[in-house]
Structures are given as C-alpha cells and as structure tokens.
Amino acid sequence: MKRAVKWAGMGLAAGLVVIQFFQPEKNMSPVNPAEDLLMVTSPPGQVADLIKSSCYDCHSNQTVYPWYSKVAPVSWYLQKHIKEGKSDLNVSEYGSMDKADKIEFLVDICEVVEAGTMPLLSFALIHKAARLSEEDKEAICVWSEEEALKVMRE
C-alpha cells in the first residue's frame, strides 16, 4: 500500500513536470493606441485603473500574468478564459468597432459590473484590485454613459 502511494505520487510529480513543456502562447501583444479602449476614450484616471485591473486580463490583448498563471494546468485554464473573453469582447479592438457597437459595449460594461456578473467571481477572488465597490461601479457607469452619448453625437 505504502509503495503504491509512493509510486502514484512520483507519477503525479513527473506528469506535472512533463506538462510544463506544453505551454499556451502568451496573450501579450503591444498596445495599439488607435484601437485600445483606454487610449481611444481616455477615461478619468480612477476609471481607467478600474477597467485595466478588472477587465483587461481577459478582454484585451494584454494579459498581466502572475507567476502561478504560468504553471500548467493553471495556464491552460487561463488561456481558455482569455480566449472566451476576447471572443465576446476585445477592448484592444475598440477603435475599429462601428458607432452602434461602441454604444452597445458602453451600455453593457455598466450593466455587467452593476449586476456583478463581471468580473468573474473566480477572477475577483484572486485579484483584489479587480473587486469593484459600489462607488467603483457608479464611477464606471457615469463614465460609460457619458462616453456613449459622446460617441452617439460624433
């Protein structure tokens, strides 16, 4: 019995080492100032910080990877989330959205943070800076509505 446990443990450890050689590509492209949401809209500093820390890891081309996120299988899990997040919405491509899509996005960002569906709980648990207070949500919504009206009048 003892031996079986020992072998199983060693097998697991070896497996963990082997999977480290299969790493997904990193989601780290340079920022394109003509496309990037924060560059294009330049929200007030507080709102920009909130959006950067709460949304950008999964909804942009610039993920900030903490050390543990580089370890498989965590890195695989993360890549899946980033892929899904970006396919829903990629703020690194905000500049090339048409007017109606921009407005739709700006209305959405307020609604999802207000409803608490975003950022995902799993993300907010690990990232303290991504947890939004009621004041944070309010600040995002005030900005997003202003920006939406601005886009509308462009």
Binding site: A100, D101, I103, E104, L106, V107, D108, E145, A148, L149, M152
Partner: peptide, 12 residues
C-alpha cells in the same frame, strides 16, 4: 429606456 440603452438592445 434611455437612448443609449435602446441602441444597445437594437444591436443585440
């Protein structure tokens, strides 16, 4: 609905 909300819904 406010106008921005309408535009958002129409898109969806």
């Amino acid at each position: 609905y406010r106008v921005t909300k309408k535009i958002g819904i129409l898109g969806k």
